[in-house]
Amino acid sequence: MLYPIDNYFEQQNEPTRSCLLFLRSSILKHDPDITETWKYKMPVYCYKGKMLCYLWIHKKYKSNGVPLPYMGIIDGNRIDEPDLIKEDRARMKILLIDPHEDIAVERIDRLLTMMLQLRQSL
């Protein structure tokens, strides 16, 4: 029997599943104090117990007809990064990931480092 969080990933179609699993692994490897939890029916990542980011799939943005997965950044409004999209959110920003393209690992690592620095300063 799968846990709800594992089931979430398994229910995704390719290439979205592989993209989300790669992001999951990258986030968890970035720092030993990052933990994964299941909140609001989605995978949420916390740093020392405080919410850091989450993984989800955008209904509006698509690539080759496939909805784009994204990393939602908690307090993303405090991060000045041109790749982040604010939309109508007051506090969050998102980073869209195209599962049909290579993931820019350096960009993900840089963003995670910025997110941890922000969490530590709050």
Rank of each mutant, 00 (worst) to 15 (best):
I74P: 00
R107G: 12
D80S: 12
I57T: 14
C46G: 02
K39A: 11
E10N: 09
T16S: 13
L55N: 05
T35Q: 14
H100R: 03
M114D: 12
Q11P: 02
K29E: 14
S63I: 06
D83C: 07
P43F: 07
V105E: 08
Y45W: 13
R91M: 14
L52N: 06
V44M: 08
K93L: 10
E10S: 09
K39H: 10
L95K: 04
L111S: 11
L68M: 13
S18L: 04
S63M: 03
L68F: 04
D6N: 15
G76Q: 03
T37Y: 08
Q120C: 11
C19Y: 01
Y47F: 15
Y47S: 02
R24A: 04
M71W: 01
C19R: 00
I73N: 03
C46P: 02
Y8Q: 05
D98Y: 04
R110P: 00
Y54R: 13
K50M: 04
E101V: 02
A104Q: 15
D31M: 02
R110G: 06
L118R: 15
L84Q: 12
Y54S: 11
L116Q: 03
G49L: 05
D109R: 07
V44G: 11
K60P: 00
L96A: 03
S121C: 11
D102P: 00
S121Q: 10
L118A: 10
S18Y: 00
H100P: 00
L20V: 03
A90T: 12
L52S: 03
R110T: 15
S121I: 05
K62A: 09
M51G: 05
E101T: 07
Y40L: 08
K41C: 00
P69I: 01
E106Y: 11
R89D: 15
E101G: 01
I73G: 00
D109K: 04
D88I: 02
I34P: 01
W38M: 09
L28E: 08
M115V: 10
Q11W: 11
L95C: 04
L118K: 14
G76C: 08
K50N: 13
F9D: 00
S18C: 10
L28M: 02
Y8L: 03
E101R: 07
Y8M: 02
G49E: 12
D33G: 01
Y45H: 07
M51Q: 08
L68V: 13
S18E: 10
L2T: 09
I97T: 03
R119W: 02
P82R: 08
I73R: 03
N64E: 12
K62S: 13
L52I: 06
M114E: 12
R110C: 13
R89T: 15
L21D: 01
P32G: 10
L55V: 06
